[in-house]
Design a protein around this nucleic acid. Structure first.
Lengths: 147, 147
DNA sequence: GCCGTCGTAACGGTAACCGTTACGACGGAT
DNA sequence: ATCCGTCGTAACGGTTACCGTTACGACGGC
């Protein structure tokens, strides 16, 4: 599976904004988030744009612009982020339709669809158990670098 | 997530070989399997090669060559197939290391690694619950096309 | 009107997967 | 000993997704 880092970067951005706001700041800029994640501000803006469409964050334009949470970290789960950022299903069917004249070719897609649905349901359930609040807690629990 | 069809095609091939053998045949050729899956024989040979490395199938060369199961369908699970054909982890970390001077940048990777490990463990558990015997059963249970 | 930031288009690089062609290797069948 | 069907595998091109980057208009406090 060609894994991608979209969920990781999105969680990073949300945790960063959440901590930033708890430190008393109003809005976070894509530039600062990008510096923490060591990537390009446009990458952050693109991802946060998808989170905004899902109602997880809000953005202000003009002077003093930036991003803020639309919900508390404790009410956002990894499933919310996953659904906002990962479009397709986990496993794909055949690219071309199998031979419908063959028993296996005819029955394989309904069979796999049902099996995959169950598995993805379990995955979603697991993702829903992890809040961004817990992510931030785990982040802050990481051992400090000794001098 | 850019889903791929490797697990689906591999399961298709195994179910096809299993049914073929139950019909009394010795070995299955990549050409016949490819015809059922509506793809190229080389694609099947590549995938079955990975399943052979995992000890799930065997291949014979020379005249009357082809593929056969190395284990009963009931003892092969989707997890066996998944591990044989899907190399990497489900979710990836940042492409570049985050800013270690930032609290979030420093703690995000250990945090996400732990969370992802739990989730993937659950996924593997679900995959292990489905045997290829069940896949073939579901395939054969698909409704016939009415005339 | 200025200026910082968002929003978004556009482009190139990278990587994975798939389909295809090609060809040597193997080993029963004759 | 030769033949022939199949495997095993390399090589190449096409497609797609994601990422990084540049560019530039839109917005809105000041």
């Amino acid at each position: 599976m060609s894994a991608n880092s979209r969920l990781t970067i999105a969680a990073h951005a949300l945790a960063w904004i959440g901590l930033y706001q708890r430190q008393g700041h109003e809005v976070a800029t894509s530039e600062k988030i990008a510096a923490s994640a060591n990537t390009n501000p446009v990458v952050i803006r693109r991802l946060l744009g998808e989170l905004r469409r899902a109602g997880l964050v809000e953005s202000r334009r003009g002077a003093g612009a930036g991003w803020s949470l639309a919900r508390e970290l404790g009410s956002i789960t990894l499933l919310d982020v996953y659904e906002a950022v990962e479009p397709g299903p986990l496993f794909a069917m055949h690219r071309t339709t199998p031979d419908q004249g063959c028993v296996v070719g005819h029955g394989i897609q309904p069979a796999m669809r049902g099996i995959y649905q169950d598995i993805e349901e379990t995955l979603r359930h697991e993702l829903a158990r992890v809040t961004l609040e817990k992510v931030l807690r785990d982040v802050l629990a990481a051992p400090r670098q000794p001098l």
